[in-house]
Structures are given as C-alpha cells and as structure tokens.
C-alpha cells in the first residue's frame, strides 16, 4: 500500500502532464493540415503604420519589398526623398525613410537604384505611400517569412484597418506585385 499523499501528487502530475501533452497533440494535429501563412495584399494596404507597431516581433516581420521591374529608377524618387527635400541627394535631411533603410545608388544619368536594408526596415510603410503617390508603386509591404513566427492570430491582421492581411499557402507565401520581380534586401 502506497502512502495516500504520494498517490495524490502522482495523480496530479499525471493529470497536468495529460493536459500539456493533449495541448501539444492538438497543435501538432493542426500543423498536419495544409500550412497557411499570413501575407499582405499590396492592393489593399493603406500604409496605416500598424505593421510597424503591432507585430509581436520587434522590429516587425513586415518589411518593404521593392520591385525592380516596376520601378522607374527615378532621380526624384517619391519613396526615397521627403516631399520637402531641398536636394536630390543622400543627405539624411532629404531622406523620407526615418530609419535610413533605403540606399540610393547611381546607375547612369539620370537613373538611380533603390535598395531596402531589411535589418533597418521596420515596415512603417511611409516609403510605400511616397512611391504610390508620386511614383509607380514599386515599393510595398510584405510579411517576411524567414522572420515571421506565423502566429495563429496575427496581431497586425487583427488591427489592420484595410483588411489587407490574408492567409496564403506556405508554398506560395508572397503576394508579389510582379512575376518578374526579384526580392532585394
């Protein structure tokens, strides 16, 4: 005959373990179904800024993507330069991106290439707005899947005022603006 106290403790440990194992089993069963991930529909996004503030990760898993095939390689880039920029150069006072995540490289007169430094980008979407208003809309936001932890309930999707977040198959995790485009980072 085992002492009663020990048995009670063992029963509790077994019960608690069963709850935890059950939880793990349910979640692993869920992961057997076709995997879906969160992504932003660039046509719906209104650059409200919540992608930068509402992600559970800091900095956000949302980054600016840039489509070379859509970009006009403009000298006066609405996504790179502030509306009140005094000069079209790389001076910090002229740059629109608050984190200096966009680099500008001269190609040939009068064309410039713009690249996004993913480590600095926080997904605020200001450049996207500038590019949309004055350029060709080659800059847009996407959830970067090597960073995103694919929360069950994406905190940004919950807060998005434009219903721009959707579940897409993990096999095709990006909603790119152009088939020809290449991701730059």
């Amino acid at each position: 005959m085992k002492p009663k106290g020990k048995r009670k403790r063992r029963d509790f440990v077994r019960g608690a373990a069963a709850v935890l194992v059950g939880g793990v089993a349910v979640s692993s069963l869920r992961s057997c179904s076709p995997k879906l991930v969160w992504q932003i529909d660039p046509e719906k996004c209104t650059q409200c800024g919540r992608c930068a503030t509402h992600c559970v990760l800091a900095p956000s898993a949302v980054k600016c993507f840039h489509s070379y095939s859509i970009c006009g390689y403009c000298d006066l880039c609405g996504g790179y330069l502030r509306p009140d920029a005094k000069k079209r150069n790389t001076g910090a006072e002229n740059q629109l991106c608050p984190t200096a995540a966009i680099t500008r490289t001269f190609i040939e007169n009068p064309y410039y290439q713009y690249k996004i430094d993913e480590d600095l980008c926080i997904g605020c979407g200001i450049c996207v707005e500038g590019c949309d208003v004055f350029g060709n809309g080659s800059m847009y936001l996407q959830v970067k899947h090597d960073l995103c932890v694919n929360c069950n309930e994406c905190a940004i999707a919950h807060a998005c005022p434009s219903d721009a977040f959707k579940r897409v198959p993990a096999s095709e995790p990006y909603l790119l603006k152009s088939d020809r485009e290449k991701r730059i980072s």
Binding site: G49, A52, T53, H54, C55, V56, A58, C124, A155, A159
Partner: peptide
C-alpha cells in the same frame, strides 16, 4: 503583445 502597440 499589447505593450508593443505604441504609435509611431
């Protein structure tokens, strides 16, 4: 999660 919800 909530505490990240600061404004820009």
């Amino acid at each position: 999660g909530q505490s990240r919800r600061t404004e820009l």
